[in-house]
Amino acid sequence: MVTINGKQEQAAGMTILAYLQQAGYTPERVVVEKNLEIIPRESLNSTLLEDGDSVEVLRFVGGG
């Protein structure tokens, strides 16, 4: 199990990019922190989620 935004998710084995797409996020509009480390945008496709990972996905909306 992977903890994503405080919820337990069956996402172990997926890349972060695959998880984001499945969950309906636009990858260009999020900041992802995994185990207290920011994952650069270009690494989303090469970073695997593993059992026990703790992930925060922050979604940004337009306007400023």
Binding site: V30, V31, P40
Partner: peptide, 10 residues
């Protein structure tokens, strides 16, 4: 823009 916000914060 949301992509710019995410880019800068990240």
């Amino acid at each position: 823009r949301p992509d710019q916000k995410a880019m800068l914060v990240g």
